[in-house]
Amino acid sequence: MKCLEFRRELLQDPFAASETLLAHEAECEECARFSRRTRAREAALRNLLRAPEPPPELAERVRLAIRMEQQAERRRPFWLAAAASVMLAVTLGLVSLYERHIERGHMALAQSVVYHIVDEAKHLHTPGPAAPQRVREVFARFGAQLAGDIGQINFAAECLMRNRTGIHLVLQGEQGPVTVFLMPGETPARTVPVETDRFEGEILPTPWGSIAVVGERGEPVEPLAVKVVSRVRWGARPATGVAGLAQTGGQKLAGRISL
């Protein structure tokens, strides 16, 4: 094997180990040096490209997205699948697109809720209860208040969610922690279920936005959801988005998610 051929083969696949390649490397010092440099660079390239670790819940997020899509397809009226004429097909197609658009929005909202819980999983283990004064302060930033007991609150903070500020609570459920997000400005068209292998709950629309109540699978979240929805009094001017941050004097945010 000639040196030219050796180097071409090596640059095509630096970790190739054909007998002729190895034989030439053993007898040609220059090519052996070239081989060492090339393989070192290839190792660096592999380390660079193969190293980034995905967030641990990426696969779960994908599964959730597919389940939401399955649900969206099942909710589509049966007649959408049986277009009889071109005009009907176009109309149905437009309705379907619109429904898909709405369902994609619900799917994205549910995903962001789960992602935020996972991203800030440490708050699930915050020992409670949180100081009542602290809870009142967090609500007061939004002109909101709790008009009754919603159970033990272990964690309360302002949070940035999908470019809007809201309230992140962790309540003590029957079996474990239950996350509650009060999301002003997030307005789903209906109650959106949240379901993954680990979590289940729902996102309930309200006049001012929505409330997400999510616990570990098996946790009966509905009684808590009813309490929270009925006892949260939201102010006339909720502090949302960047303007809200300015109003609250740039309070420290508990976390950030993005979609």
């Binding site: 995905p54 990426l58 994908v62 599964r63 389940r67 939401m68 399955q70 649900q71």
Partner: peptide, 18 residues
């Protein structure tokens, strides 16, 4: 909600990282 087929679910788990 529906479940993913076992095969597809395995693909998601195995191939998401790469």
């Amino acid at each position: 909600m529906g479940k993913l087929s076992k095969q597809f679910d395995a693909l998601v788990g195995a191939l998401s990282p790469e």
